[in-house]
């Protein structure tokens, strides 16, 4: 079992021997060790620096716990996170999920288990990124539609025509906010049928 593409993994663990275990397993699995941090605080600094593709992190650590670090990582440097802990209470799992953790593995993991966890966390993270992008596009389209509906020349309810200076001003303002090429594409049959370069 070996990864097709070498992902860069940041290990965050305060116990040196456990770090040794994780490192050994990751190397066996073919991952690249981006770095090792001793606690959540150090991890935040290293993420900016080494830009890992996945973070493998303990929960109980001095200075900053894994859950706190996960929240800050997802806020500032969104990255797939796998929690590796000897604790497995429901509360901790729930807290981890709410903090944006992609997978939760109980120590000591088998190599296959660790592999699955890392890949699932990465997959989920990619899905989340895609979802976020789609949501942003949807929100933008919704806003445009809302603005356009205000510019309809006839009221769809009573059929009254919109005229006067206010309507003309609103129309001008909207049209001025859109590039000419885009307006032409919608308003001119000739320009609209022309393909984008």
């Amino acid at each position: 079992m070996e990864v097709s593409r070498k992902r860069k993994v940041l290990i965050v663990e305060d116990d040196h021997l456990v770090s040794e275990m994780i490192r050994g397993m990751l190397e066996e699995l073919g991952y690249e060790i981006a770095g090792e941090a001793e606690d959540g605080h150090e991890a935040l600094g290293m993420i900016r620096e080494v830009q890992p593709e996945v973070v493998l992190m303990d929960i109980k650590m001095p200075k900053m716990s894994g859950i706190e670090a996960a929240i800050l990582i997802q806020k500032h440097f969104p990255t797939p996170i796998v929690i590796l802990s000897a604790y497995e209470t429901e509360d901790l799992v729930k807290e981890a999920a709410e903090a944006g953790v992609g997978a939760y593995v109980v120590k000591p993991p088998g190599p296959a288990e660790l592999f699955r966890a890392i890949e699932i966390a990465c997959g989920r993270f990619e899905d989340m990124v895609e979802l976020s992008s789609l949501r942003r596009k949807y929100e933008k389209a919704l806003k445009t539609l809302e603005n356009l509906s205000k510019l309809l020349p006839v009221c769809p309810g009573c059929g009254e025509e919109k005229r006067g200076e206010d309507y003309s001003r609103m129309l001008s303002m909207y049209l001025s906010s859109i590039p000419v090429e885009e307006i032409s594409r919608y308003l001119c049959f000739r320009c609209g049928s022309r393909k984008d370069p």
Partner: peptide, 12 residues
């Protein structure tokens, strides 16, 4: 669990 992890770590 931690001890087992550490033993594995020692082995690695």
């Amino acid at each position: 669990k931690n001890n087992l992890s550490e033993i594995i770590g020692i082995l690695y």
